[in-house]
C-alpha cells in the first residue's frame, strides 16, 4: 500500500488552510479498472427494470409505480460508488506546517554582465538580497549554491544552514568565478549531478540575466526535467539593457569588447522563459521577494506533497469523510421505497 508519486506530483487544490492531494497508492490502476465493472453493476438493475416494465406493459405504473424511485436509487448508487473509488485513491489534506523539506540548488550567474546596474545596487547584489530574503524562516529545506559563468562550480553543497549559504553567496563577485562567458546549461547539469542522490523534492533555481553564449540551457533544463527535477528561473536586469560598470585603473569604467565598444547587457527574458518552460518550472522577474514568492507558491506545496508521499510528513486522511458521504447516500438508497404505494 505504499504511496507512489503521481506523475504531476500533487493536485494543488487549495481549500482554506489545507491543500488536497491524492496519495495514489500502487494499486491505483486497479481502481480505474473497477470503474467499468461498477458501471456494469449499475447498468444491470436498470436493464432488469426496463425488462419488467416492458413485460408489464400498460399495467406498469399500477404495479411498479413511478420510474423516479428507481432513478433516485440508481443515482445514489452511482454517486456512492464514485465516492468509494475516490476514497480508494486516498485523498489527504496537507496542512501548512513546515516547508516540506525540498532540496533547492541556487545557480547564481556571476558573469561580468551581473555587474550591470540596471538593478540597484547591481544585478548580482539584487540576487544576493533575494537569497537573503529566501533564507529567512526556512526550516527543513536544504539549499546548495552553484556559481557559474563560462563554467560552473559547486560553492556550497546541500545544507540546512541557510545562513551559511547566504554568507557564502554574498562573497561572490561578478567576473571572479570560472572562465568568461555565460553557460547556464553547465550550472544546471552540475546541479542535477549533485541532486541525483536526493530523495526529496528537487528544485533548481537559475538566478541570471538570461545570457546564454553556449546555447545549452534549454537542453540541460529538459534533461533535468526528465530526471524529475524542476527548473525555475529568476531574471535579473532590464530588457532595455545597461552598460557594465567595472573597477579599472583610475576608478570605475564601462566594460568594453575587443573593438573598444562599451558592452551593453540585457535581461534576456525569452531565454529564461524557454529555460524554465523546458525545465517544467516558472519564470519570474526579480522584484523584492520574488524568489521567496516563487519558493512559497511553487516549491513549498510540491515539497509538502513529496514529503507526504515519502512518509516524512503525516497527512490528514480525508477518506473517512468521503466514505461518510457515500454511506449517507447508501442509507438514503435503502430508505427509498422499492415501488410507489
Amino acid at each position: 500500500m505504499a504511496g507512489r508519486a503521481f506523475a504531476v506530483g500533487f493536485v494543488p487544490l487549495k481549500v482554506a488552510v489545507i491543500a488536497l492531494l491524492f496519495l495514489l497508492p500502487t494499486y491505483w490502476p486497479l481502481v480505474l479498472l473497477l470503474l467499468p465493472m461498477a458501471l456494469v453493476a449499475l447498468w444491470l438493475p436498470r436493464r432488469a427494470e426496463r425488462r419488467r416494465r416492458s413485460q408489464l406493459g400498460a399495467r406498469t405504473h399500477a404495479v411498479i409505480g413511478s420510474p423516479r424511485w428507481p432513478l433516485l436509487r440508481a443515482s445514489c448508487d452511482a454517486l456512492a460508488l464514485l465516492l468509494v473509488l475516490v476514497a480508494l485513491l486516498q485523498p489527504v489534506g496537507v496542512g501548512e506546517q513546515g516547508d516540506g523539506g525540498a532540496d533547492v540548488v541556487l545557480c547564481v550567474d556571476v558573469s561580468w554582465s551581473m555587474a550591470a546596474r540596471d538593478e540597484l545596487p547591481s544585478r548580482l547584489q539584487r540576487v544576493q538580497e533575494e537569497m537573503g530574503e529566501l533564507a529567512t524562516g526556512l526550516t527543513d529545506t536544504r539549499l546548495a549554491l552553484v556559481a557559474f559563468a563560462g563554467t560552473a562550480e559547486l560553492v556550497v553543497p546541500l545544507t540546512v544552514d541557510a545562513a551559511a549559504v547566504v554568507t557564502m553567496a554574498n562573497e561572490l563577485l561578478p567576473g571572479a568565478h570560472g572562465t568568461g562567458g555565460t553557460d547556464p546549461g553547465a550550472a544546471i547539469d552540475l546541479a542535477r549531478q549533485w541532486l541525483a542522490r536526493s530523495e526529496r523534492l528537487r528544485v533548481i533555481v537559475v538566478l541570471s540575466d538570461g545570457e546564454d553564449f553556449v546555447g545549452n540551457g534549454m537542453a540541460a533544463a529538459a534533461r533535468t526535467k526528465t530526471a524529475g527535477i524542476v527548473v525555475h528561473a529568476v531574471g535579473c536586469g532590464d530588457p532595455g539593457g545597461s552598460k557594465i560598470v567595472v573597477d579599472g585603473d583610475g576608478g570605475e569604467q564601462f566594460l568594453r569588447d575587443g573593438s573598444g565598444n562599451d558592452i551593453v547587457s540585457r535581461l534576456e527574458v525569452a531565454n529564461l522563459q524557454a529555460l524554465s518552460h523546458a525545465g517544467g518550472g516558472r519564470f519570474t522577474r526579480s522584484t523584492p521577494n520574488s524568489l521567496r514568492r516563487l519558493y512559497d507558491e511553487h516549491v513549498v506545496p510540491a515539497a509538502r506533497a513529496a514529503a507526504v508521499h515519502s512518509g516524512r510528513l503525516a497527512p490528514r486522511h480525508l477518506a473517512p469523510w468521503v466514505l461518510f458521504t457515500a454511506l449517507c447516500l447508501w442509507m438514503l438508497r435503502w430508505c427509498v421505497p422499492e415501488r410507489s404505494r
Binding site: 546548495a144 553543497p157 546541500l158 545544507t159 540546512v160 551559511a164 549533485w194
Partner: peptide, 14 residues
C-alpha cells in the same frame, strides 16, 4: 567556513 554542515559527503570531499 568552506563547507557548512551537510549530509552530502561526496560534495564535502570534493
Amino acid at each position: 567556513l568552506r563547507c557548512p554542515l551537510t549530509s552530502d559527503h561526496e560534495a564535502l570531499v570534493v
